[in-house]
């Protein structure tokens, strides 16, 4: 049997994993499902593209690629800056809208507002950049044989490596650092966190910055492997939430494994059932997990 679908699933899962990590952190700490999270992927990709265009324009030459990849250090630096800017964008939206709704309204109000934010952010991208797809690189990459009938391009392998590194970094941050402990404490009991002396508002700001930045990296990965479109994030929203819930809300390793489960399930569905069923996979996984194990694979009951 050709196992290429496994490799395809791993690559899709890797692009989902970081976005799902942001979803799981914001869901756990803010207690609402932010349906605008997918737009942070799109904004991260477009901001990277804009910064790359600016740097290329100033230097008089497009950013050079680093063999064997289709992009180079210049674009990675732009992606890093775009990740920071996307984190700031997420934070600004919180200050302007979600924070007020948290103080006055219920979680449902914030969820509904996030739909509006999602539409506004997507419409803004369409107005600024049009709906035509764009590409970080038009270079055609040759897939390398990996054994067992599987192949992957250097860019795909690079995306998988970046995902592993960043997810491990976030998991370490949560497990070993003061800010990580504070994030876990606020996720469990924000009132108690306050009287322990934790600046809950500061932890929420950190969560937005981190979630937005990770979504941006996920968006750049998706743009690199597929294409950059204003609707790219919105189309991934359901798989992102499915990954976060399959993994268990609040768990970073869970979000990564959840991303891989969703990615491989989608690829297997395409391979064995039919491409038209791909979009249903996330729904089926989501319903299955919520019915059978609502805490997800790695979620813990208090």
């Amino acid at each position: 049997m050709n196992l290429q679908f496994l490799m395809d699933g791993l690559v899709v899962g890797a692009t989902l994993a970081l976005g799902a990590t942001g979803v799981t952190l914001t869901y756990a700490n803010l207690r609402f499902a932010n349906f605008a999270h997918g737009e942070f992927l799109s904004w991260g990709a477009y901001l990277t593209m804009t910064l790359a265009g600016l740097v290329g324009g100033l230097s008089g030459a497009p950013l050079a690629a680093q063999d064997p990849f289709s992009i180079g250090m210049g674009l990675l630096a732009c992606a890093l800056l775009a990740a920071a800017l996307t984190g700031v964008l997420a934070l600004l939206i919180d200050v302007a809208l979600f924070r007020r709704l948290r103080q006055r309204g219920t979680a449902v109000t914030a969820v509904m507002a996030s739909f509006g934010v999602s539409m506004a952010l997507r419409a803004l991208l369409e107005a600024l950049y049009s709906t035509s797809p764009r590409y970080f690189s038009e270079e055609l990459q040759i897939a390398l044989p990996l054994g067992a009938g599987m192949r992957a391009t250097p860019d795909q392998l690079g995306v998988c490596a970046v995902t592993v590194l960043l997810a491990a970094g976030v998991a370490l941050l949560l497990a070993r650092t003061a800010v990580g402990r504070q994030m876990r404490a606020v996720a469990e009991n924000p009132s108690l966190a306050q009287v322990v002396g934790i600046d809950v508002a500061g932890v929420i700001r950190t969560t937005w910055l981190l979630g937005g930045a990770l979504a941006a990296v996920s968006g750049v990965a998706l743009g690199l492997l597929v294409q950059v479109r204003p609707s790219m994030g919105a189309e991934l929203l359901l798989p992102l939430f499915a990954a976060a819930i399959v993994g268990g809300i609040g768990s970073v390793p869970g979000a990564v494994v959840g991303g891989l489960v969703v990615g491989i399930a989608e690829a297997a569905t395409v391979r064995f059932i039919g491409a038209e069923w791909r979009a249903a996979v996330s729904f089926v996984l989501l319903i299955g997990v919520l019915l059978l194990r609502p805490t997800g694979l790695f979620g813990r009951r208090a």
Partner: peptide
């Protein structure tokens, strides 16, 4: 000023040491 609530006074999903570390970190 320190306050200890009657119920839900520890972070159940954190280890005992992490519960203490939260205060020590400050």
């Amino acid at each position: 000023l320190a306050y200890v609530p009657q119920i839900e006074n520890v972070f159940a999903t954190l280890s005992v040491e992490d519960n203490l570390a939260l205060a020590a970190d400050l």
